[in-house]
Design a protein around this nucleic acid. Sequence first.
DNA 1: ACTCATATAGGAATATCTCCTAAATATTCG
DNA 2: CGAATATTTAGGAGATATTCCTATATGAGT
Lengths: 154, 154
Amino acid sequence: MSVLKEFNRVLKEKGYKFTSQRQHVFEVVVENDGEHLNSQEIYELVRKKYPEIGVATVYRTLALLEEMKLIYGVDFEDGFRRYEIVKDDKEHRHHHLICLECGSIKEGENDLLGTIEEEILRKDKFKVTNHKVKFYGYCDKCLKIMEKNNKTHT
Amino acid sequence: MSVLKEFNRVLKEKGYKFTSQRQHVFEVVVENDGEHLNSQEIYELVRKKYPEIGVATVYRTLALLEEMKLIYGVDFEDGFRRYEIVKDDKEHRHHHLICLECGSIKEGENDLLGTIEEEILRKDKFKVTNHKVKFYGYCDKCLKIMEKNNKTHT
DNA sequence: ACTCATATAGGAATATCTCCTAAATATTCG
DNA sequence: CGAATATTTAGGAGATATTCCTATATGAGT
């Protein structure tokens, strides 16, 4: 699995050790891409394959992975820090569409915000290097359900 | 002070009571607009004027104010939930510019994101009703300092 | 003022996450 | 391979932010 080799390589490059704990945590995050797992959930999943692992190690490893820009922590305001994989090696250029009805989280298109960031540089003299963007509203599915309910009500 | 009367009116409208605790919490948030106070800081400030207040009451009141859409909680990932006043009575249409160098938080222009939200409706079939947007980067001041340091280095 | 539902204080409880330390382990070098 | 060494880990204690619990207090309507 080349993604693991790459992980090993980046670790060594930065002088970190390649331990089985780190490997397992990384694997779980990779295998559950798109799930937005939180630390607890990752801990539970890792324990299935590596029962001896400690909570602190999971937290440490997640922090390390984030520092290495392999993963990315998002706060969906549910009390947990949730993680996802960084896809491109540049910046975390994407955003989330969070449905207020069903709670689903969809990842949005990249690059929508580029022009805005230029405008911010012009207007506010602020050089944007990254962003965390969450749009709240209603997903396609829930919109349709709500429309139908409205019709039956009238 | 008409803002307090308005507060009283909205409380009654929703069947909530106008207590001095709620009044003091609300006042502190209003008086420190732009400061992005967290719950602890609000608690401390309220205690100066109303020493008997309890922590739980402050949390409850902040949750109530947020539910009433009078204030708005933001997570700057420093471990605290921070609050600011909702200015327009519609949506929280603004964003934050967070400097990675000095940690300053500036509030950005409204309405920058309107066109993007239209595009999201078209492309993703997702109806946006609100957003939480944080841009990370470097503020004017820090950019200048960094430029200067670069020059002296070469 | 009386009534009653709601709100509060205060502390205990919970939950997430971090710190601490002795033991374990990855990596390097001979 | 095996020894040396610095890093990493497990496990639990600790820290911190927030919520829950309950008897008491208080606002609002009559």
